[in-house]
Simulated scan of single mutants.
Amino acid sequence: MTSPTATLLVSCPDRPGLVAKIANFIYSNGGNIIHADQHTDFTAGLFLIRIEWQLEGFLLPRDVIDTAFAAIAKPIEASWQLHFSDTIPRIAIWVTKQDHCLLDLLWRHQAQELPAQIALIISNHAHLESIAQQFKLDFYQFPITKDNKLEQEAKELELLQKYQIDLIVLAKYLQILSADFVAKFPNIINIHHSFLPAFPGANPYQRAYERGVKIIGATAHYVTADLDEGPIIEQEVVRVSHRDTVADLIRKGKDLERLVLSRAVRLHLQNRVLVYGNRTVVFS
């Protein structure tokens, strides 16, 4: 059992001395830095850093770290997030009928690969309720039509609040969330079955086959109001050939989808992803 740590994710306009200012805040308060990674986007003129330190021996109580860092952040025009390693996020997994991504996440969670608590499963169909029962998870079905979509989303938001959900994972949830829903709950990760920006939307494997591509992929990204346009967290590809049918592409793609989604969720839970604009920095 490792001692708890704190992590700061910071972005601000680039200027000299930023690493020193941020590191000195931790050092001067007795902190031992165990991880630091940084990136400068020269095009955007933006500096981004992830810095993690041990809380044992740190002089500031947890509840004042954020306020204390604000005195450093304001002069450098920084935006920041503060996370603690022993704060366990609560996840809701949303599904439709396909089970491969859901099962992969549940198995990885069971193997303690994901530092989170999976609190419930939500679906617009009843097909995967037996899996929820198998893993002793609460399951809720919200059938979606064009006429009841907003009403159902309001109920789903109430449920997320009741369960104190921090992150939604769309594990092949084949519905488009409304812009209003995303605005009210922006922490959503989706898996898309293509190497975005190629083949957004529906039926990418069929369109990839018709185009005769030699590589197919999968993309995990944060959800925004624009379909399949959110900041990308993780991607992977596999080669295909003229001998592969659409069914072959789907089979190979499912393997990628499992891997890419689990990687993205883990990176998010480890606080290694920093979004700026419609891009991300994924810290090692």
Results as ranks from 00 to 15, higher is better:
L106T: 02
D180H: 11
Q270F: 12
P204D: 07
R15S: 15
I49M: 15
E158P: 02
D37F: 10
A202Y: 08
R266G: 05
P61I: 10
A198E: 14
L269I: 10
I215W: 13
R251W: 08
L167G: 09
F47Q: 04
A183S: 13
A70F: 01
N148E: 09
I233L: 07
A179K: 14
H125L: 04
A171L: 02
N187P: 00
W80T: 00
V223Q: 08
T43M: 14
I65R: 00
F25M: 09
P13D: 10
V265K: 00
L106M: 04
E158S: 14
S11Y: 08
K254F: 04
A208L: 03
K162C: 06
L256E: 06
V223G: 08
T224N: 11
L267T: 13
R50S: 14
L18K: 00
R50A: 13
I76P: 00
D248M: 02
W107Y: 14
Q98L: 12
I191T: 03
R50F: 10
I215D: 05
I188P: 00
A92K: 02
E158F: 07
N203L: 13
A132K: 00
Q161N: 14
Y209T: 01
I65V: 15
I118A: 08
P4Y: 09
P4L: 09
I122K: 03
T245C: 00
I232H: 05
A116L: 11
F47Y: 15
D14C: 04
W107D: 09
D166N: 13
H242R: 03
Y209I: 01
Y205L: 03
